[in-house]
Design a protein around this nucleic acid. Structure first.
Lengths: 142, 142
DNA sequence: CGCCGTTTCTTGAACGAGTCAAGAATTGTC
DNA sequence: GACAATTCTTGACTCGTTCAAGAAACGGCG
């Protein structure tokens, strides 16, 4: 496992550091986790990492395209390791649960807007809002 | 104009207050404005409104469906008055500019996920990421 | 194998959008 | 007009995230 992560980092031209390896593992192990959860997961194997190291690592990994950052309205930043496979997310309005959804309309056509206003579009991000199975049957979150 | 806004509020079963009217006007006048801009716009006509009144009004109006809240990753909350017409947004990665885009695939089919994981989906939100015309020709944001 | 320059991490303070809470003012109804 | 309910004002406060300075780790080189 560590070897995997190490190769990913080297492949991206990044230095291999303990915090980065741990962060990469944590994101793989906990898809859609927020930063605080990732800090917790990282510290299980590396008790003394600073929160800042995790923030820095997440930024670096995101910039390198090794993890993806998502942030639905009203939520804190979350991270996942599925990248470059054109999938989207469903978010529960009630409990905030997130699940993956493959692209609705085939391969990657979501990238086509009807009128792009002159923008050079490079990514289409889709978030479906609704209620997860649990909240759907048992309403009234509060 | 005020009459319009007043009818919208009454139609939604909301009390008609000066701050709410001003907020509604401001959102109509400045699509995709963030909260701070809206506060500024509101205070041009109503100098003594508290920021809290604006926050409250925006929440109420959003809950009533009179305005829509959008919040692209890394941005603060923004509001717009186009509701219920199934349009999406393009966001410039460089300068943060936002433009409207009509639904790519016809009427409202974006609401169909390929596999909804058991969620009861009620809305599909699409954000296209790219570079606006200005940033596209003049690169290097920094 | 050990040194060196660069990058990354630690520590701790700071920031800003947004929220909470208590009391005063306003709304709409009787 | 007066009352109950809602909304607004004021001001403190939270929480995720960023900033900044110095210490430590990384990896290329001899």
């Amino acid at each position: 496992m560590t070897t995997d992560a190490e190769q990913l980092l080297r492949g991206a031209g990044l230095r291999v550091t303990r915090p980065r390896l741990a962060v990469l593992d944590a994101v793989h192990a906990h898809p859609h986790a927020d930063t605080e959860s990732i800090i917790g997961a990282v510290r299980r194997g590396l008790p003394d990492v600073s929160h800042q190291a995790v923030y820095d690592s997440l930024h670096t990994l995101t910039a390198a395209g090794l993890v993806r950052r998502i942030q639905p309205s009203g939520s804190v930043a979350r991270y996942e390791s599925r990248v470059d496979d054109n999938h989207h997310h469903v978010v529960c309005r009630s409990c905030g649960a997130i699940a993956d959804v493959d692209c609705a309309v085939g391969h990657a056509p979501c990238l086509t807007a009807s009128d792009d206003s002159g923008f050079r579009i490079d990514e289409a991000e889709v978030i479906y809002w609704g209620l997860c199975p649990a909240c759907s049957t048992a309403p009234t979150p509060k």
